[in-house]
Computed example of a mutant assay.
Amino acid sequence: MTKTAYLLDPETTLFRPVKLQDGISFKPLYELIACRLIEVVRFDEKHSLFVDEEGLRDGLTAFALFEGYPQPLAGKLVLVGGDGSEPYTSPLISLEDASAYFTCCRPVVDPVFATADELTPRGLIITGALLGFQLRFERRSPTLVEGEA
């Protein structure tokens, strides 16, 4: 028998159901998340999120915000039913309802150009010249993919 879990990949924003083999093992979760150390985050009274404990690292290209959680979550996230202990169950919430709790974010670097001739201590900067870069975060809702993979 198989169970269903919901997998969110902040990099692609895809949020989809996946099949997990029935049993009492966290091994399938480690494989889905592709990490060495899993952290359990309480989703609600009936659900838990499994996340990469070491997801926030150098070279971060995307992350997810989870409503009500104090810090970003990086790496793939797996939502299951239960309190995070074994055996976990299929989620009791719909994929669409679960997605409302997440925002996928990625850093974007925008060039900043001089809008008028500017005189700086280093000399004249001509209109249209590159002054530097500015960082912003692009925020998107998860993209729902129906059907199990």
Rank of each mutant, 00 (worst) to 15 (best):
D110W: 09
P111D: 13
P111Y: 09
F113K: 14
F113A: 06
F113M: 14
F113I: 14
A114Q: 10
A114I: 12
A114R: 06
T115D: 03
T115P: 01
T115L: 06
T115W: 03
A116P: 00
A116D: 10
A116M: 08
L119T: 14
L119Y: 04
T120M: 02
P121I: 07
P121S: 05
R122K: 12
R122Y: 02
L124V: 11
L124R: 08
I125D: 05
I125Q: 06
I125T: 15
I126T: 14
I126S: 04
I126A: 04
I126V: 14
T127G: 05
T127Q: 13
T127L: 03
G128I: 13
G128T: 07
G128M: 09
A129F: 00
L130T: 12
L130V: 11
L130P: 07
L131N: 10
L131Q: 15
G132F: 11
G132C: 08
G132R: 04
G132D: 12
G132T: 15
F133Q: 12
F133N: 09
F133C: 07
Q134H: 10
Q134N: 05
L135W: 07
L135A: 09
R136F: 00
R136M: 03
F137D: 01
F137A: 06
E138N: 08
E138R: 15
E138C: 05
R140M: 05
S141A: 13
S141G: 06
